[in-house]
Computed example of a mutant assay.
Amino acid sequence: MAPSSSFRALHHAELPLLLPNAWDVPSALAYVEAGFPAIGTTSFGVATSAGFPDGDGVTRDANLVLAARLARLPVHVSVDIEDGYSNDPDEVAAYVASLVELGIAGVNLEDSAEGRVLDPAVLASKVAAVKDRAAEVFVNARVDTYWFHQDDTVEATIARALAYVEAGADGVFVPGLTDPATIREIAAAVPAPLNVLITPGLSLRELADLGVRRVSTGSLPYRAAIDAAVHVATAVRDGEVPPAATSYADAQARIRRYP
């Protein structure tokens, strides 16, 4: 079953696109059955669930495997590919092209590596190469100035975002951006959909009024799932009633419905 609306169009609805981030097939299936028209992946969840830190480039092969499985779902899928796993723009473009061939609608591509923001020309060249190779893919260029608190000024962030849009980026993601006035200023200055993480205290409607067009859950659901698992065990240990959950039968039926 094909999605009823294009991934790009979902960024121009009345409210921002809420993109929940999955780390495996069961989490993605749960999002699909909850009615979300698109899902993303979280590099943190994919990496750490395999026992590796996030941001070290270890998700390259795992993402290909996960993408092949998620592309079969009746929703749009965007894959978090960190910095593209290479400094060579052509290698990054080839990797993204392989995801597109699987049926992936979008990618997140960030302007940092090993915890440091890079010269914006680095990501701009990767974005240009990706769009030249696979024009149809939605490239969400991630600006990490506020995430790593490096060069985290409005002016520097806007300059980076504009460079990536000029190179062909379809959207701009600024994780760590939470101040309403700053969000509004960056959204107004960047001629592409602005993506932020869930912002405590700001609803989707309020974020829409600030100019935001996409909101990602990031690794929050994955981290919350780990906390929930610990809570089940500690509740039993401490003589408390464990929390309710999807039944074994329903969870089994969900995976059997997986195409």
Rank of each mutant, 00 (worst) to 15 (best):
Asp152Val: 03
Arg256Val: 10
Trp147Gly: 06
Leu118Val: 05
His231Leu: 04
Ser6Ile: 14
Ala113Lys: 14
Val25Ile: 14
Pro242Met: 03
Pro191Gly: 00
Ala159Glu: 10
Val230His: 13
Phe52Cys: 11
Asp132Gln: 12
Gly211Ile: 10
Val215Asp: 02
Tyr248Glu: 09
Gly51Tyr: 03
Arg214Tyr: 13
Arg8Lys: 15
Gly168Trp: 09
Leu204Ala: 04
Ile183Ala: 07
Val58His: 01
Leu162Ala: 00
Val236Met: 13
Tyr146Ala: 11
Ile255Val: 15
Gln150Cys: 01
Leu194Gln: 08
Thr178Tyr: 12
Thr217Ser: 15
Ala34Thr: 07
Pro243His: 13
Glu101Val: 00
Glu14Lys: 11
Leu202Met: 13
Pro89Ser: 03
Ala188Cys: 00
Thr178Lys: 09
Pro200Tyr: 08
Phe7Asp: 04
Gly168Cys: 07
Asp83Ser: 12
Ala253Lys: 06
Arg205Cys: 00
Pro3Leu: 12
Ala229Arg: 11
Ser98Cys: 00
His231Lys: 10
Gly84Phe: 05
Gly45Asn: 12
Arg133Ala: 15
Tyr146Arg: 12
Ile104Leu: 02
Arg60Val: 02
Ala50Asn: 09
Arg237Lys: 13
Val46Asn: 01
Gln252Lys: 11
Ala94Leu: 06
Arg237Leu: 11
Glu185Asn: 07
Val65Ser: 15
Pro26Val: 09
Thr41Ala: 04
Ser6Ala: 09
Leu220Gln: 12
Ala134Ser: 15
Lys126Tyr: 10
Ala225Lys: 03
Glu33Gln: 14
Thr199Leu: 03
Glu206Asp: 13
Leu118Gln: 14
Ala34Gln: 02
Leu207Val: 13
Thr246Leu: 12
Val58Gly: 09
Ser86Glu: 07
Ile186Gln: 01
Glu206Lys: 09
Pro259Met: 11
Pro3Val: 02
Gln150His: 00
Thr234Phe: 05
Leu19Arg: 03
Leu162Met: 08
Asp83Met: 06
Ala141Gln: 14
Pro26Asn: 10
Ala38Trp: 01
Ser86Val: 07
Val137Trp: 03
Asn87Ser: 09
Arg223Thr: 05
Ser203Asn: 09
Pro3His: 07
Arg256Ile: 08
Ala94Trp: 03
Pro200Ile: 00
Tyr164His: 08
Val25Arg: 14
Arg257Asp: 14
Gln150Leu: 04
Ile158Tyr: 02
Pro221Tyr: 04
Val143Asp: 00
Ser49Ile: 12
Ala121Met: 11
Arg237Thr: 06
Val32Gly: 06
Gly45Thr: 01
Tyr146Glu: 05
Phe148Gln: 07
Leu202Ala: 13
Ile198Asp: 06
Leu210His: 01
